Simulated scan of single mutants.
Amino acid sequence: MFTGIIETLGYVEKIVQEQSNLHFTIKSAISDELKIDQSVSHNGVCLTVIGIEPGMHTVTAIEETLLKSNLSELKVGERVNLERCTIAGARLDGHIVQGHVDQTAICTHIENKDGSWLFTFKYDTAMRNITVEKGSIAVNGISLTVVNSEIDRFSVAIIPYTYEHTNLGKLREGDSVNLEFDIIGKYVSRLMSIREAR
């Protein structure tokens, strides 16, 4: 489990394709502290560490993960949001994030609010995922609060710290992001769909 509070940025050093899988080697400040088999969130995707070398670690994304996330779009040199799993008994500063990306969204608008930024994202409603105003959502693994909620889009307000210490600062209109919707909202949506089917 994660909290959506990004620890550090990593940088993609190498990408190797093996059959339908992609191996990503990431350079970061926390790589030397990781262990083989450890779970680490990469842009909101929970991936297992399979290799460690000085200052770098390697993880594998399988086809299912690549289909549900934007990891297949990563290029060497790009920034990746990193978070290690939550320590039991620690403060939960963000919200409950599983590291299981539901789908991607497209950034449709970025507005500079003179001290903060308003990002708007549009997503496909076919999966019946929903947001609610003042609810939580993970965007590229970052725990954020929904400002405006519509049927197929939502906005989030970004403070300078988040803008500077995550990969949102490099995001441009038209770029895709990973979304993990609130787990409680997903259960409610599923229950409603079962009720409607009866």
Rank of each mutant, 00 (worst) to 15 (best):
H95Y: 11
D124V: 03
Q98D: 02
H100C: 08
N129G: 04
R128M: 09
T120I: 00
T104L: 05
D102R: 07
L92K: 13
C85V: 15
L82N: 06
G99L: 10
R91H: 10
C107T: 05
Q98Y: 11
A126P: 00
C85E: 13
D124K: 03
L92Q: 06
A90H: 12
V101K: 08
Y123T: 00
M127V: 10
H100L: 05
A90T: 05
L82V: 03
K113Y: 00
A88Q: 14
F121M: 06
H95G: 12
R128F: 07
T86F: 15
Q98M: 10
N129M: 06
G89F: 12
G99M: 11
H95W: 10
E83H: 08
M127N: 08
I110C: 02
N129T: 03
D93Q: 15
M127H: 13
A126T: 12
L92R: 10
F121T: 00
H100D: 05
Q103L: 07
K113F: 02
R84K: 15
H100F: 11
A88V: 15
A88D: 11
H109Q: 14
A88T: 15
I96V: 15
H100N: 04
Q98I: 03
L82W: 05
T108P: 04
D102M: 09
R128S: 11
C85W: 10
I110H: 02
D114Q: 10
Q98W: 12
A126L: 04
T104W: 06
A90R: 02
F121V: 02
C85L: 07
A90E: 14
D102Y: 08
A105L: 07
N81S: 09
W117K: 04
K122Q: 07
S116W: 03
T108V: 12
D124M: 01
T86H: 09
T86L: 15
T86Q: 11
R84E: 07
E111D: 13
H95C: 08
R84Q: 14
Q98P: 02
A126D: 00
F119K: 06
Q98H: 08
M127G: 09
G94R: 02
C107G: 01
F119L: 15
Q103T: 10
Y123W: 11
L118T: 09
H100Q: 07
I96C: 08
A88I: 15
D102P: 03
F119E: 04
N81H: 12
K122C: 03
E111S: 11
W117Q: 06
T125S: 05
N112Y: 14
C85Y: 10
K113V: 04
R128G: 01
D93T: 14
Q98L: 13
R84Y: 05
A105D: 02
A90N: 13
G94T: 09
D124Q: 01
T125E: 02
G99D: 08
L118H: 00
R91W: 11
L118A: 05
V101R: 04
F119V: 12
A88G: 06
L118Q: 05
A126Y: 01
T86A: 13
N129E: 00
R128P: 00
Y123K: 04
Q103H: 01
T86C: 11
I87W: 02
